[in-house]
Write a protein that binds this DNA or RNA. Structure first.
Lengths: 220, 220
DNA sequence: TAAGCTATTGGCCGCGCGACCAATAAGGCT
DNA sequence: AGCCTTATTGGTCGCGCGGCCAATAGCTTA
């Protein structure tokens, strides 16, 4: 990336440099795994010396925690933007349908891997642990808002939006448990599981959450 | 454990020593995590020099993989013994009920952590990866047999025992995703999730899988 | 009892890691 | 213009790791 052959130094404002470091670390964590975030690795990506990264993050665990938060937040905004959760013009069904479709596709495998990674690493890293719990609740809360707005619209039948949000996320996390260890025997039974579960949980008609407008297609 | 102050050597038959090493590694992996399995750590537990462990496992990854397999197999036998899956005397409902109860309790948190650990580590370790997939399918197959025998008994209504087994395991893995990052807000909505899901999946009456004989208690 | 096989030791190597620190130079200030 | 703050360098330290190997000593066999 940033070619640094000679000795020319680039001096940046502390805040800008800090953001740069977090962004690089987040990218590494998301793509290669959180344990690949090391002072030297991040420094290499930025074309600086490792001591500089250590200067901004005296304890590497803090960098890892911050990187995870940044990555998770970014991905949440890509999967379920906050603007879409309140009084969505297309309706809550549309929003939820999109979320499930995006989450199930292989395009967001990196996200599933990140969560698996973070939840395991939380076992050893207290700082990360705290951030992971916070993000888990944030994701649930955003789903909860979609559900709640669907209830207001009258399209969802659900007594406890928070409980439903938690359970739908658990179903998602369950199927995503296998991103690193996929087996062909398991894919078929799981393809529709989350969607079906969500439909039951929210009192929707069968296939109501099928992507696009395919609902009426294959069931004559 | 094995006190080794002086220089006395204990020479054992290769196979016995090998088993000893795997058992020690499995214990470490289950309790402290798979990444804590190192030549030195295992050697210390056995009161032996690290070179010896390296002699039996020239590549550490093979030891980790074997340790995981041993631990996972042992836990499966504790949670759902193979003998209980075929023509169970107490019936499939009883067997499944027991499995779900054991799996949900905090007594088997180590097992949940182990799975989380193994699934994440599979990302980097090919040998482990292969073992993890194999174990996942083994666990599913054992659950499938319980379901199939329940169908034979006529107590389960289920078109695809394998598919149901896979989905029930996914629901279990979903709720177990949070063993390292538990949050009080999430516990209540999740307590009955797996059980309820399994009841729907197998066409059982509501609360049919409640532990013990509490089924008829709170619903007059 | 003596010999031979081999399980076991003890020690070494290079690696990447986090962490520390004095020296240096970039860029805003007067 | 020169100064002065501080972002950045470049290097060092100790650690635990996996891997390797010659020497040693325990058990079995002849």
């Amino acid at each position: 990336m940033t070619s640094r052959g000679g000795g020319k130094r680039t001096r940046k404002a502390p805040e800008e440099r800090r953001d740069e470091i977090v962004a690089a670390a987040a990218r590494i964590g998301l793509i290669e795994g959180l344990e690949r975030i090391t002072l030297r690795r991040v420094a290499d990506d930025l074309g600086v010396r490792s001591g500089l990264v250590g200067h901004y993050f005296p304890a590497v665990e803090d960098l890892v925690a911050e990187a995870f938060t940044s990555a998770a937040l970014g991905e949440l905004d890509a999967l379920l933007p906050e603007e879409s959760t309140d009084r969505a013009p297309d309706g809550a069904v549309h929003v939820l349908r999109g979320f499930l479709a995006r989450m199930s596709g292989t395009a967001f495998d990196d996200v599933s891997r990140l969560w698996l990674n973070a939840r395991h690493l939380s076992r050893y890293r207290p700082v990360l642990h705290e951030r992971v719990v916070r993000q888990e609740l944030l994701w649930c809360r955003r789903v909860e808002r979609v559900i709640a707005s669907g209830v207001e619209e009258g399209v969802f039948r659900c007594e406890d939006p928070w409980g439903s949000a938690v359970r739908v996320m658990a179903a998602i996390d369950g199927t995503n448990s296998y991103t690193n260890t996929s087996a062909p025997q398991r894919s078929a039974p799981l393809t529709a599981m989350v969607r079906t579960f969500a439909e039951v949980e929210l009192g929707l008609a069968r296939d109501a959450l099928l992507p696009q407008g395919v609902e009426a297609a294959g069931s004559p």
